[in-house]
Structures are given as C-alpha cells and as structure tokens.
Design a protein around this nucleic acid. Structure first.
Lengths: 262, 262
DNA sequence: GTCAAGCGTTTGTCCTGACATTTAGACCTG
DNA sequence: CAGGTCTAAATGTCAGGACAAACGCTTGAC
C-alpha cells in the first residue's frame, strides 16, 4: 500500500501536537518560551506527546500560539538541550523514545536519597577547623596550613549507614551549625547564604575499607567501597568545597544519565 | 580611595575583549556565531581573555564585528552552556576562573586513554551471538532469548590490563569485525556506520573481584573493582548497546566535570 | 527496473528593532 | 555618616522577516 491520501497518522510518527491544548499567558511574568517549554515537557512526560511523533513545523506552531518563531524555537531548543527532543532539518522535530530522566545534576547525596523516598538522616562526627593539607589546599586554592573547616558526617538511609562524607571548605564561607548539618544537606546551606553553585570536578574510584571505615559503615574490613572526590566551584570560579566521600558499595551506586555534546 | 576617573582596569575585572583580534569570514560556510564562539573559546583557553574579566557589552561587540546582536548572543550562549562564561544581567558577561575541561562526555574508554596518551590496545576475548538474558533483553528492549551479539574485550594501557569490557548489542546493528574491534573503539565503529549516539544511562558501583576476573586483570581475588553498567541510546531513542564493564580500581578512576543545570 | 534529478517541506542561520528587568553605583536626604 | 533612591548600563525577552541548507519523496530519464 504505497500511496494513500493519508488524512493523518502517516505510519507511526504523526504530528500529534495539533491535538494539544497549548497556550501562553501574556500577563504572566514567566517568559513565554519558558511557559511553552514547560507545557511541552509536561505533555511528553505524561505521554500526551507520543515518543517518535513529530511536533509539527515551527512556523505553524508559532502562528497557532500567536508567538514569533524565535520564541517557539527557544522553547524547543531548551527541550533539545534536555534531551527530550531531536530536530532534523528537512524532517521536523521529533519526541525521543528513551526515558530521559536527568542529564546528571550536581546533586547532593541528601537530595538523591530524599528524592528516592529514603528518609535520609545525618550524624555529625566532626565539625572543626584544621590546617589544610597539601591535597586540600591545592583543591581549594588556599595556602597550605591555612585554616579550613572540616565536616565529617555519617549519612543514613532508613537508619542504615550509607556513606561517610568528609567535606573541607574555606572557613569564611559558611558558619556551619552542627544542628543544621544534621537536618539538611550542605549544598542547601550554601545556596541559602547566596552561593551559586556552578560546576564540580569529580573523581569516582573504588578501594577496600580499612578497619575504622568498616566499623563506621557496618561492613567487613577489606570490603569494596565506592570512593568519590569532588571539588565544587561557584559561579565566580572560586572553589567552595572539597569533598572526600566513601559509600558502601553493597548498598549504593551512582546512577545518572548523560547526553552527547552535539 | 573611593572615586577615581578610572581610565581602564576598574579593580580586577576589566573588559579586555577590546584588545582581542576578532573577526568573521562571511564567505565561509561555517556559521558566523560558531566562528565567533570558537575564537572566544580559543582566547579563553590561551589566557588572552583573563579569568574574571568582562567581555564587554554585546551591542558594542556586535557593532565592532559587523554582526547582529542575536548572532553574538548565540556565540556567547554556547560558551555559557560549556561553562566557560557566566552572564549576569546588569553586570555583563564574565570569563570564569575555574579550569573547566569537559562537562562530561559520552566517551569511550578507548578515547579516554588515547587522549591521555596511554596507547590503548585491545584483546578480543569473545565475539559471539548469544540469546539475551532477562537483564540484557530489558536493557536493549528486545525479547528475552533473542539473538544478541556479545563482545568481550580486555583493554590495556601500556600493555597493562585496565578493564574487562562486555558489550551486548542488537545483531542487526553492526557486523563486528574482530580485527577492527582490536584496532579501534566500539563507539567509533558505530559512528562510522551512521549511528548517532545521543544519550546513555549509567550506573557506577564497586565490588570485589572473583577468581576469574582477578586472573584476567592481574589483581588478587577479592580486590576492589569499579563496576559500570551503561545503556546507550541513539537519536531515535533506540538502545544500541548495553555494556557491563569492570575496571581495576588500583589503576583507574572516572574523572569528569559537571555543570549545574541553570 | 533502476538510478538520478527535481521539488516541496522543515529546520538553520541571520538581520533589524523594540521594550523589560536587573544590577551596581552615584546621588541625595535625613 | 548612614540610609534609601534614582539612574545608567547591561543582559533578557520578543517580534517579524528573509534566505540558505538539508532531507524525503516524487518524478523523470535511461
């Protein structure tokens, strides 16, 4: 059956966006492109825009919504950057099949666990100020021997130890209240005092647990541990934190999604 | 010293871009915004644009280059997305201090090692077609028991074993030449046949080596290993590969940089 | 029958213009 | 001298138009 009039639904990749209830509120302070991208993202998330279906051409979509093409393009582009859509010249914009979750965020373990419904709790083992070792000084960009705050915590999920977190941060950055450290995550505290996190350099490896680490985490000595080191930078390029963390490999693995840089 | 005429260099964040030799070639098929972003990136990389310095306002920059503001903005935006620049409304566009390398790519171990000058080599242990287990079938989205190609390789750097790589891929996707597998990476072979890699879902954990794994990698049984599972998708959302890899933790760690989603 | 050329469709790139919003600093006032 | 207020400057948002390039499909020629 080669050629039919094809009223709609050509094969399996039909433009379904026409059936979508889209519209923007021009009185809202929310940017128009953002309103649109959120509506499209919600439609994809809920399956109202089927994977593989075409979005319909930008010009017509813009006309239908009473927007200009650049605005519509900006909305679409943001979803392309998130990995939800794929554009192909001469073809159209297509909803991607795969279940994209997150393109890897700079998330804290606290947020990760909370999002997974794991009821994270924290025990602060140490909260002191110590002179920086060469390793820490290099990571934070301070002088060796300079005062650096050391926060050492045990993180639990469902009252089961998951990780030992050691964070080193410049003393002047944050006054770490121990009680606050137990009730929330470190990154949240930073954001709360106006620090804009920007990027992080991470290293993920594995090693065997020594006697004390094994005791803390409830593992046998020599048990494999996931080890992560992370230096976090704010949007001025300043290192705001150096973390040295170990996780029980029997209980935890890093999961993330990543996109190919186009 | 509150107020000085300040002819230039206000503090430590002066607009230095004025001294830059920028210019675009309108006869080139390379997009103008891309030419500009490459020149800016090179200038940042080489330190000709000092970290912390301002880029100067977009309007003037556009006028100086004979470009429109949207074009200049597009160039700047691509560098913001790469994490090299930070824009702040009312302030300007600033070069970031930190040494951003890569925002985490979907890289193969082969490319990683080659980029590090490690002379990677490969030994193919197995290159067969087998029925898919439940785990593999679920990852690839094929029926359980369906034919799936299994490629098992040992990866060396400087003639030292680094990792055992097990890849499972749909048979129809690629005819895997063993000789080719030894001389290059799997991802390169995929790209060569027109597969556009799009995203991957990864899980990184740790576990102890069993007897055979230890023998292959030259480690002691029970030694900690880095374990990674990865499902790779192309731009149609189709799963093109499921990998199940182990790395010697004594020799290898994952390093990457990641950006905060704004 | 097969392959190549042509055509319409769709996104990619680029331009010009306008107004809104935010920030930092200067200014003025109490 | 401290405080808020106003202003200039910069990026953020949005519109509307034009042409170029690539893709898929149809048509045509051999």
């Amino acid at each position: 059956m080669p050629k039919q009039p094809e009223p709609e639904q050509p094969g399996g990749a039909a433009p379904q966006a026409a059936a979508l209830r889209l519209g923007v509120d021009r009185t809202s302070p929310v940017p128009l492109y953002f309103q649109l991208s959120q509506q499209l993202e919600a439609a994809i998330e809920q399956g109202r825009l089927a994977p593989g279906s075409l979005l319909g051409n930008e010009i017509e979509l813009a006309a239908r919504l009473g927007l200009s093409r650049p605005t519509v393009r900006q909305a679409i582009q943001s979803l392309v950057d998130k990995g939800l859509l794929v554009r192909r010249r001469g073809v159209g914009t297509q909803v991607l099949h795969s279940k994209v979750r997150r393109p890897l965020e700079l998330s804290s373990l606290y947020d990760d666990l909370e999002a997974a419904g794991q009821r994270p709790t924290t025990r602060v083992l140490r909260n002191t100020v110590e002179p920086a070792t060469a390793r820490i000084a290099a990571a934070l960009g301070v002088a060796e021997g300079a005062d650096v705050r050391l926060v050492e915590r045990l993180r639990y999920a469902h009252d089961e130890p998951m990780a030992r977190l050691r964070n080193h941060l410049p003393v002047e950055l944050l006054d770490c209240d121990t009680a606050q450290l137990e009730s929330t995550g470190l990154y949240r505290m930073m954001r709360a005092v106006g620090i804009t996190l920007h990027s992080a350099r991470q290293s993920v490896g594995a090693r065997a647990a020594d006697a004390e680490e094994a005791r803390l985490l409830g593992e046998a000595p020599g048990a494999p541990l996931l080890a992560m080191e992370r230096t976090t930078f704010d949007d001025t390029g300043r290192a705001v934190e150096f973390g040295d963390h170990i996780y029980r490999a029997s209980r935890y693995a890093f999961e993330f999604q990543l996109l190919v840089r186009p």
